[in-house]
Design a protein around this nucleic acid. Structure first.
Length: 637
RNA sequence: GCCCACAUAGCUCAGGGGCAGAGCACUUCCUUGGUAAGGAAGAGGUCCCCGGUUCAAAUCCGGGUGUGGGCUCCA
């Protein structure tokens, strides 16, 4: 006689063993319809799982986070079933739910094509219509391995052999398709519904290891209902409209070309924006006690060998050899250069912390497949800084860096920021005791600053643990930009020291920090976040002065000259075109403010001001318009 | 680096073994207009590069480069 306790605290008694499905049905019709799984004493289970003892039970519907994840996992299984029906020789491997959808990795000779996707999707919908029951079976490990090997599923057999022998293996059967899976699953394929879509194919290494076979991966998206699916597909379209590569062209900011893969050709407007970012950062970090320096872009191979970079990243460094056979590397990062500056002269503990900053242009020979617009380039500019301090100063300095980073992100309109703590990777330099100390110091700073964070195990740099600052953009995508790393290794490797209170030499702690990360990447994110509609203080052309008739040409020139004299970036458009044509063109180019001037404005020394995105315009005296704009620029709104 | 796809005018793209196409942009002319495309004419090409097949290749095949979507990587 199981007693079932529901999440609202109410309890029900059942005469005999029951199941999630029965409980849902006894509560209500709509719950029975929307139920996809059940949580029994905190464990996610199939709706049909027998409950024969007292338990706390929560019915999960398709709209819940867990329910949706289950739905996506089932979509992956239905995908695999469809592929096996269409091409029985294909081997299945794994197919998990992921953010927004699912994928399944297959092994087969022929790659899937776009038209295959249509056929597979149609077959998946047939399987949903068939409403096949999805049944859980417990198998013995060796028998299961033998079974899968018997039907030619070598990958499944390999997975089973990796599962501990004392663990029960579960297989899920739907129609003629049977798959190894921990579960849980929906009660039947019909429950999946049809709010899914296959999106693309790609390659993926077996078990994520580039030494293994390349499998064929099919990606799809799945949602609890059609409306959600449409919303997601619209978001993808929106993302495409915001693509910085497209906007970079229409805004005339930059271009790429074949002769310099992964390197930006900056156009005047793009470079203007780049300089605005640098100027802002310079102002902020100078106020925070940083000193700006500049270090050589080409330095001897020997320096990179002693820093450890040659050994760890040598394949990804651009190198150069002179006619007389000297070997140099183009800097992939600024740290070793900064240590050289710190090492000049003798530093006392009284001088610490020393905060050295550089807008350093770095080059990394990134794998060709990794390049992606401005988000991943081979030539980029870091807003890099290194803080040399005593161990006692780590916490305060780290807190200050966190404050600086979060404040700067807010200035650019990013309010949703997550922090990840990444600790020691497998490939690293330095003693474990030193790592213990560095990791503890970073956590202590996070806690002292009262910041929430998540743990990212094994993702630290090879010389120290790090904090990663991830910002979420206007359409919900996450970007990792800033970083703060505690390094107790590099100063020793490169021979940096300071004289302590005791008169002896000590190793300084080195904090690495970047806020934009890469200026190029940050600008790409900024463009996409604002969909190109940059705030006034950043827009490369802030005001465009448009003439309505040629009689106003001279006045337009005067207006633009006045704007520029007051520090506003302004250009004129005196072309023999209709005003609506000009308005459209500069709106498309994302100019935030347009001043239209014609006969009336000329006579009254006014301007008709139109803001990007607005359909209205406001006529006001030129001086007043300038004052308004200046205060907006000043406030960085 | 690996898998798949793509590469044609400044841009977006159509075409396709036998004369290189459209729209927008550009130039000139007409038009001087009141807030997201006024009209006409003109100019513009190594069809990514190198080979091969063929009487003939932008088109078919092979290799390379670049780009896109992923995988791996990201100091």
């Amino acid at each position: 006689m199981p007693k079932i306790t529901l999440p609202d605290g109410s309890a029900r008694n059942y005469d005999a063993a029951t199941s999630g499905a029965e409980i849902a049905a006894s509560i209500g019709k709509s719950l029975a319809r929307d139920a996809v799984a059940v949580r029994i004493n905190g464990e996610l289970r199939d709706l049909t799982r027998v409950i024969d003892d007292d338990a706390s039970v929560e019915i999960l519907t398709r709209d819940s986070d867990d329910g949706l994840e289950l739905l996506r996992h089932d979509a992956a299984h239905v995908l695999a079933e469809a592929v096996k029906e269409l091409w029985p020789d294909t081997q299945v491997t794994i197919g998990p739910a992921i953010e927004n959808g699912f994928y399944y990795d297959f092994s087969r000779e022929e790659p899937f094509t776009e038209s295959d996707l249509e056929a597979i999707e149609a077959r998946m919908k047939d399987i949903v219509d068939r409403d096949e029951a999805i049944e859980r079976e417990v198998w013995e490990r060796d028998k299961a391995a033998e079974f899968f090997r018997g039907i030619g599923e070598e990958y499944k057999a390999e997975i089973i052999e990796g599962i501990p022998s004392d663990e029960d293996l579960t297989l899920y059967r739907q129609g003629d398709f049977i798959d190894l899976c921990r579960g849980p699953h929906l009660p039947s394929t019909g429950k999946l519904g049809k709010a899914f879509k296959l999106t693309h194919v790609s390659g993926a290494y077996w078990r994520g290891d580039s030494n293994n076979e390349m499998l064929q991966r099919i990606y799809g998206t799945a949602w609890s209902n059609e409306k959600q699916l449409r919303k997601y597909l619209n978001m993808l379209e929106e993302a495409e409209k915001r693509d910085h590569r497209r906007l970079g062209r229409v805004m005339d900011l930059f271009h790429f070309q074949e002769e310099a893969p992964g390197a930006v050709f900056w156009h005047p407007k793009g470079w203007n924006l780049f300089q605005s970012l640098i100027n802002f950062m310079r102002e902020q970090q100078n106020a925070a006690g940083y000193q700006e320096i500049n270090t050589p872009e080409i330095m001897s191979r020997a320096l990179w060998e002693s820093s450890g970079h040659w050994n760890t990243f040598g394949d990804n460094m651009f190198t150069t050899e002179t006619v007389d056979g000297r070997q140099y590397a183009i800097k992939p990062m600024n740290c070793p250069g900064h240590v050289q500056v710190f090492k000049q002269g003798i530093t006392s503990y009284r001088d610490l912390p020393v905060r050295l900053a550089e807008f350093g242009k770095c080059h990394r020979y990134e794998p060709s497949g990794a390049l992606h617009g401005m988000m991943r380039v081979r030539a980029f500019t870091q807003d890099d800084a290194h803080i040399f301090c005593t161990p006692e100063q780590i916490t305060d300095e780290s807190i200050a860096v966190c404050d600086l980073i979060l404040g700067i992100y807010r200035s650019f309109g990013f309010d949703d920021i997550r922090i990840k703590f990444a600790d020691r990777p497998e490939a690293r330099v330095g003693e474990d005791a030193v790592w213990d100390q560095a990791e503890a110091a970073l956590i202590k700073a996070l806690e002292a600053a009262g910041l929430e964070y998540t743990h990212n195990p094994g993702e630290g740099a090879f010389y120290g643990p790090k904090l990663e600052f991830v910002l979420r953009d206007a359409i919900g995508r996450d970007w990792q930009c800033g970083t703060l790393q505690v390094d107790l290794n590099m100063p020793g490797r490169l021979g940096a020291s300071y004289i302590g209170e005791d008169g002896n030499k000590h190793l300084p702690v080195m904090l690495h920090r970047a806020i934009f990360g890469s200026l190029e990447r940050f600008m790409g994110i900024l463009i996409e976040h604002h969909a190109g509609n940059l705030p006034l203080w950043l827009a490369p052309v802030q005001v465009k002065v448009l003439t309505i008739t040629s009689e106003a040409d001279e006045y337009a020139d005067e207006v633009a000259a006045e704007l520029r004299a007051r520090g506003i970036r302004a250009e004129t458009d005196l072309r023999n075109e209709k005003i609506s044509y000009k308005v459209r063109e500069h709106s498309v180019a994302k100019v935030p403010v347009q001043f239209a001037v014609g006969q009336r404005e000329l006579e009254n020394r006014t301007v008709a001001m139109r803001r990007l995105g607005s359909k209205k315009q406001q006529v006001m005296p030129l001086d007043e318009a300038i004052e308004n704009l200046l205060s907006e620029v000043e406030s960085r709104a």
